[in-house]
């Protein structure tokens, strides 16, 4: 579903992503671990088609993202680290607005259903987003992706800044989405959360994928050890 082959990307001569090859299958959750500046966000931006790789190919749903970005974007959901919505609209209105932008018209009860699925309690639907917590906004962000029936979810540091309960709810939700057939890639530096949620884990260092492993192969403590080892080298 997600296929990155030999991708290179440099900013002003400084490489951000080098020689990156990566696949994510349908129903799979891949976690990208890496320090700040390891190239996680660049990878996601390339997958979104916002950045073009200097060389290599990036395809989503078997199609090259740079050739059919418009069509592919319909199937991609993106949840940034900080989901910023329009503070003067309610959660429901935000969802409605973003759906309408992609040409989808849902009834109010359908929209509420989406929010409920993504874990936003009904009593909060009508509140202004200005009063939402970070976790609540993230749920609306996922609902936006869910409402357009995204086949691919890209998450950038989704767990940072969430309280443990919200973080846990997110894990449950992501697993559910994957079990329904979504392809999920999440970038993070939260080793424990990644091991818990993801099926597979990749470690990035200076833009290079230095290690790939399956999460059931290691315990959280072992993963931390491996991570630190690779990062330091």
């Amino acid at each position: 579903m997600i296929n990155i082959q030999q991708a290179h990307k440099a900013f002003k001569g400084k490489p951000a992503v080098q020689n990156l090859t990566l696949q994510v299958e349908q129903g799979e959750i891949l976690g990208l671990l890496g320090a700040n500046g390891a190239g996680k966000s660049t990878t996601i931006n390339m997958l979104l088609g916002f950045l073009k790789p200097d060389s290599g190919t990036i395809s989503v749903l078997e199609k090259d993202i740079n050739q059919s970005s418009k069509e592919l974007r319909k199937h991609i959901g993106y949840i940034p680290e900080n989901v910023n919505l329009y503070p003067y609209l309610s959660g429901l209105e935000n969802l409605d607005y973003f759906c309408r932008l992609s040409g989808l018209k849902y009834t109010k009860s359908e929209l509420q259903e989406f929010l409920n699925i993504c874990g936003l309690p009904s009593e909060d639907h009508q509140q202004k987003v200005a009063e939402y917590s970070k976790g609540m906004r993230q749920k609306v962000g996922i609902a936006i992706a869910y409402a357009k029936k995204a086949k691919v979810y890209l998450l950038d540091e989704p767990a940072s800044g969430l309280d443990p309960r919200a973080s846990n709810e997110l894990s449950v939700l992501l697993k559910k989405l994957a079990s329904e057939g979504a392809t999920i890639l999440m970038a993070s530096h939260d080793i424990f959360r990644v091991r818990e949620v993801c099926h597979r884990i990749g470690i990035l260092r200076k833009g290079e994928l230095v290690k790939e492993l399956r999460s059931e192969e290691v315990s959280a403590n072992e993963l931390e050890k491996i991570y630190l080892e690779y990062i330091q080298n």
Partner: peptide, 11 residues
Amino acid sequence: SGRLKLLVLQG
């Protein structure tokens, strides 16, 4: 705020 990416992603 990063909403621009979301807007573009929504088409």
